[in-house]
Amino acid sequence: MALNTPQITPTKKITVRAIGEELPRGDYQRCPQCDMLFSLPEINSHQSAYCPRCQAKIRDGRDWSLTRLAAMAFTMLLLMPFAWGEPLLHIWLLGIRIDANVMQGIWQMTKQGDAITGSMVFFCVIGAPLILVTSIAYLWFGNRLGMNLRPVLLMLERLKEWVMLDIYLVGIGVASIKVQDYAHIQAGVGLFSFVALVILTTVTLSHLNVEELWERFYPQRPATRRDEKLRVCLGCHFTGYPDQRGRCPRCHIPLRLRRRHSLQKCWAALLASIVLLLPANLLPISIIYLNGGRQEDTILSGIMSLASSNIAVAGIVFIASILVPFTKVIVMFTLLLSIHFKCQQGLRTRILLLRMVTWIGRWSMLDLFVISLTMSLINRDQILAFTMGPAAFYFGAAVILTILAVEWLDSRLLWDAHESGNARFDD
């Protein structure tokens, strides 16, 4: 018995066209964080690309023209004298008006014999932002004059995390709450300039795509075929072959399989920071003279006294001054041990922890910024005066060393310790 099946006739004509040209192939790229070699397709503007294995951002879609970056830099340069030299806060102490600005706080630190601690604050609040705007201006002028731009481009990517104007702005709020127990506070004209400078700096850093600047100024022929001998440069993120001198053909720094002496430098910085954190938390970090009496505060006791007036601000200072430094030390110690013992479990967790400490590390400088600003506000000789204690130097040095330890660690070593050939990683 035959089955009668109805015929289905399409209502619209289906047209099949042959592909007349070869589909576009992607360029081969190595991930600078996990060293995976993959094919990167062509990316349009405002599109980002991520590593298929570790999800690290390979290409950032946010990109401004150099002219727009230069305009932002010149605007920031105009704001800087007002943000640093004009009063941020006014207080009335014992019937006398006192003005506080950024430069005055750094000068008070240096004047009291601790120039190293003052230079830490100076670099993060004044030096690094000033280098940022002058570097962008150098790129703008240098591109037109045919100057060598490689050193500036190499420095810009590392400079971003040292620009800490946003953290200093939080420190202004913390210092205001600490001082309000002794005097009446009012915002100064410099505060508005400083807030504007923070906003412009944040926007500029978020749109400063150094890798795209490398592509514009020093374009290189990408690798179009897969080759395990391809290496990625950690300076400019170019994937290719080393030249005859073993250097990256684009930025001219040595092109090595792994960062040289990464573990040794990381261990040295980490152990030194552990040693410095002990006096930083045991010795007094601030000293207040009130009517001839002397009151010393460690980091913890200062947080407890701050909690009596504002528990939320005390929580912020606790996280930045105690929780973050010790968390960074514990995480980095764990990561280094996992590399030495070739741990194969929990790779995803370790990668996330490394990215976390990379982002939060700079916030530990908050305590030094609060001390710097408070020193310029309260300084009335023996009637009422505020000065920093010996722990300030140890704390600042420990924070900087932990930042350097994270920067010096080559994250690809975590993958080397893991089993080879993993296309995915999980716990």
Rank of each mutant, 00 (worst) to 15 (best):
T75F: 03
P325G: 05
T402Q: 05
F386I: 07
R25L: 11
R216N: 06
P32Y: 13
I58D: 03
T202C: 14
R380A: 01
P41T: 12
V313T: 12
M332Q: 07
A183Y: 06
L335Q: 08
V313H: 01
L354G: 12
W267L: 14
A175K: 01
S376G: 04
M155T: 03
I285L: 07
Q295I: 07
Q29A: 09
K229R: 07
V399N: 05
W415E: 05
F326Q: 06
A73D: 07
V16Y: 12
L263Q: 08
S376P: 04
Y241C: 09
V275F: 09
M109A: 13
G146V: 03
L159T: 03
A70N: 14
P32Q: 10
Y138W: 07
R256E: 09
T358I: 13
L197T: 06
V370K: 00
R216G: 09
V210R: 15
Q29N: 10
P242D: 04
F123E: 04
A392I: 04
F192E: 07
I311D: 04
A405M: 01
T204H: 04
K57I: 11
Q33M: 14
L154Q: 03
L255P: 03
W84T: 10
F369R: 00
V331S: 15
Q47R: 08
L270W: 05
A423Q: 15
M80W: 10
N148D: 04
I400C: 07
C236L: 00
F192H: 06
V189R: 12
S309N: 09
G246L: 05
Y289M: 02
T117P: 05
H184L: 06
M147P: 02
Y241P: 15
N143I: 14
M80T: 13
L197D: 02
L323D: 00
A272Y: 02
G95T: 04
R260L: 04
P254Y: 15
L169S: 02
F238Y: 10
R250E: 02
R144C: 08
P219C: 09
V324I: 12
S308D: 06
R258S: 05
P254I: 13
N4D: 10
L153Q: 07
G113W: 06
P390N: 00
G26R: 10
V324M: 15
L69A: 15
A405D: 04
G171M: 03
F326R: 00
V210W: 04
C248V: 00
I172F: 12
P219E: 07
A115V: 05
R25N: 10
I14Y: 15
P10S: 13
H90D: 10
A312C: 11
P129F: 04
L40F: 08
I199T: 13
F333G: 09
R216L: 05
P219Y: 09
P129Q: 04
R158Y: 08
S135P: 01
T334F: 15
M304Q: 09
S135T: 01
I403F: 02
Q112D: 06
R62Q: 04
S193D: 04
